[in-house]
């Protein structure tokens, strides 16, 4: 596991394009989104979404800033965001301790084709998140699948 993190933190491209499909139980049709994800050490994640709305989400530490606004809101109000932050940030910063603090981790497959499953430890996170499954090939992230207890799920594909 630490070896994978080491590879990722050094090898992975820190700016990638993504396509995401969100299936929400409360909506009659799925939401399709695409844009870019950018990770800056030590703990800033910028998600630039081009569709369905043009928007920039900057997650810095534990605050979420929407569209360059100066006033951030605590991420804790959006458990879904915590999943992305912890998963993505934990992986790319190479900070295993952070990942292991928030999640039970399981790594399967080979270094060329691996699958990392995260199950939240904290009760607050458990209520919003069942699991996060990250698939990758070597130093490349391929998909991030997120599942919530209420049946919501999201598939994010990272484009090569």
């Amino acid at each position: 596991m630490p070896a994978l993190l080491h590879t990722l933190s050094r090898g992975v491209s820190h700016e990638v394009r993504f396509v995401e499909v969100n299936h929400l139980a409360s909506l009659r049709h799925p939401i399709r989104a695409h844009g870019t994800l950018q990770f800056r050490k030590p703990h800033t994640l910028i998600m630039t979404q081009s569709a369905p709305h043009k928007a920039v989400y900057r997650i810095e530490g534990n605050r979420l800033f929407v569209n360059h606004s100066e006033r951030g809101v605590p991420v804790s109000r959006y458990p879904g965001v915590i999943a992305i932050v912890s998963g993505f940030e934990g992986l790319l910063s190479g900070n295993y301790a952070l990942l292991a603090h928030d999640f039970k981790t399981r790594l399967q497959g080979t270094p060329q084709s691996w699958r990392l499953t995260l199950h939240p430890r904290l009760a607050a996170l458990k209520r919003a998140l069942t699991s996060v499954m990250i698939r990758g090939q070597g130093a490349r992230l391929v998909t991030i699948k997120t599942r919530a207890p209420n049946g919501d799920f999201s598939d994010m594909h990272i484009l090569p």
């Binding site: 409360s26 709305h53 959006y78 919003a128 919501d152």
Partner: peptide
């Protein structure tokens, strides 16, 4: 709906249980 279409989407249950944002 805007919120649901954002990265916060996975908390949809909580958002629609309180659609007027009274909790906030």
């Amino acid at each position: 709906l805007m919120i649901l279409e954002s990265p916060a989407a996975l908390s949809s249950g909580a958002i629609l249980a309180d659609p007027t944002g009274a909790l906030q």
